Computed example of a mutant assay.
Amino acid sequence: MTTGRRVGVGGFVLGLAMMLVAFNLRPALSTVGPLLGLIRETTGLTAGGAATLTTLPVLCLGLACALAAPVIRRLGPDLGVLTGTLLVAIGLALRGFGTLPFLFLGTAIAATGIGFANVLLPALVKRDFPNSGGSMTGLYTMTLCLGAAAGAGAAVPVERALDGWPAALAVWSIPAMLAAIAWWPYARRSGPAKPPQVGRLLRNPLAWRVTAFMGLQSSLAYILFGWLPLLLQGRGLDPLHAGLYASLVTLCQAPGALITATLAARARDQRGWIVGIPGITGLAFLVLAFGADGLRIPAACLLGFGVGGCFGLALTLIVLRAADAGTAAGLSAMAQGIGYLFAALGPLAFGLAHEATDDWGVAGLLFFGICVSAILAGLPAGRAKTVSATG
């Protein structure tokens, strides 16, 4: 992968295409939670099956990220993003068949595509926008969060309009296909690229610290994707309003990601952000889950800002800690591949804790504990150092 690529007049259009891809990297995940109760009711899906359904995409994300190096070697990063976007569209379409096997299969395929694009986009930011990495990371992370919010908020209204959850899940394949079409001209810009030497990163403590922070903060987001609507329904909200609150949380991730990524990239180091943003996230979740009803809206906004900020911060760390674009691809693959595999334990443990206690108390403490762990694990990654995996 070449470094220091200068983006010419088409840089703005390239950025728009990147944003369109980013928008489609979360509806596959955020649309299931608001409809999970209906899916269980109409298919007979058990509580264990529901926990598996919320965990499966995170596992597939991790496996796809681990395969990113062969993708870079065979296809190149640009064509790799196109391949990932097409897999997202195909997986979403398969969920429209309305049976549990196709629901699980489509979810796995879509999540695999998301994993490929997730890994490669930070490397492309490092390569194509070398002088504005923080701003571009914030912009595409913000757009990604907007896609997640659109999926969460529209899930129940679209289900009612289309008279069924299969169509409500499959309809998101249309914008994903449009994103693939928009990216098509850029998929031919470069051929196969030499992948980074991942072994160097696996022996580097800094790379592991970035990976730990990525995995822990990711588990927070996927817990909310899978379980927040049901938690709010347990507090007395109907499915529509629970979905709208989940959408508000997800919508507020956008400014959180943009502001945090942009400002953190300009800071001398990122340790203050690593303490503050996960701390805000944990406190806001406790208020939303167990606090007074009158605090529900501000807590939802603050929770969304915090979760979005955590994600934007994690991606910013990948860009800042990597010495070059090739290393950014390798560090992204390591941090997201290993990180997502461990993050998969978050929604699974959260769901099992709720199922075992028939309450949300233990599960809520688990969420807060993950926030504290993210702070402790991420602090060393906030120092202004870099790692190289090329040459």
Results as ranks from 00 to 15, higher is better:
Leu94Arg: 00
Ala187Asn: 02
Arg6Pro: 00
Ala343Phe: 06
Gly106Leu: 03
Arg321Ala: 13
Phe225Val: 04
Leu25Cys: 14
Phe305Ile: 14
Arg160Ala: 14
Leu67Ser: 11
Leu20Ser: 13
Leu228Asp: 03
Gly306Gln: 05
Ala344Gln: 01
Gln270His: 08
Tyr222Leu: 12
Leu341Ala: 04
Gln336Leu: 01
Phe350Leu: 14
Leu365His: 12
Leu248Asp: 12
Ala193Leu: 00
Arg268Pro: 06
Ser247Lys: 10
Ala89Ile: 02
Met1Thr: 03
Thr137Met: 06
Pro196Ser: 13
Val88Pro: 07
Ala356Asp: 02
Trp183Met: 03
Arg383Trp: 09
Pro70Gly: 08
Glu159Tyr: 06
Ala254Cys: 08
Asp293Tyr: 00
Thr327Glu: 12
Thr107Tyr: 11
Ala325Val: 03
Val125Gln: 04
Thr386Ser: 11
Ala176Trp: 13
Arg73His: 15
Leu25Trp: 14
Thr55Trp: 07
Ala149His: 07
Arg74Thr: 11
Ala123Ile: 04
Met1Arg: 08
Gly164Tyr: 10
Phe342Cys: 09
Leu283Phe: 00
Leu237Ile: 11
Ser218Asn: 14
Cys310Gly: 09
Pro34Phe: 02
Ala66Asn: 04
Leu315Tyr: 09
Val58Phe: 14
Leu36Ser: 06
Ala242Phe: 11
Thr141Ile: 04
Asp163Gly: 02
Asp269Lys: 04
Leu20Gly: 08
Ser247Cys: 10
Thr143Glu: 02
Gln336Tyr: 08
Gly309Phe: 05
Gly48Ser: 09
Leu317Ala: 12
Leu251Lys: 02
Ala64Gly: 07
Tyr245Asn: 04
Gly80Leu: 09
Gln197Leu: 04
Leu120Ser: 10
Pro192Gly: 14
Ala377Lys: 07
Ser135Ile: 15
Leu216Trp: 01
Gly37Phe: 11
Arg127His: 01
Gly382His: 11
Leu124Trp: 06
Leu100Ser: 05
Gly294Tyr: 13
Gly364His: 02
Ala381Trp: 11
Gly215Pro: 09
Leu86Phe: 06
Leu79Gln: 15
Gly294Ala: 15
Phe285Thr: 01
Thr390Asn: 10
Ile223Asn: 00
Pro57Gly: 04
Gly339Met: 09
Leu220Ser: 03
Leu302His: 06
Tyr186Asp: 07
Leu295Tyr: 14
Arg5Asp: 15
Leu376Trp: 06
Phe97Lys: 01
Leu201Thr: 03
Phe368Thr: 06
Trp183Ser: 00
Asp324Phe: 10
Leu61Arg: 06
Pro122Leu: 05
Ala333Leu: 05
Arg40Thr: 12
Gly234Ile: 07
Pro205Ala: 13
Thr250Gly: 01
Gly76Val: 11
Ala384Thr: 08
Leu36His: 03
Val275Arg: 13
Val9Met: 13
Ala242Cys: 10
Asp324His: 06
Cys145Ala: 15
Val158Pro: 04
Phe102Ser: 15
Thr112Val: 14
Gly391His: 11
Ser388Ala: 15
Leu251Ser: 02
Ile318Glu: 07
Thr83His: 02
Ala261Ile: 08
Gly369Phe: 01
Gly339Tyr: 07
Ala47Pro: 03
Gly138Asp: 14
Gly294Met: 13
Gly291Phe: 08
Ser373Asn: 01
Leu286Gly: 00
Leu14Thr: 15
Ala389Arg: 05
Leu120Gln: 10
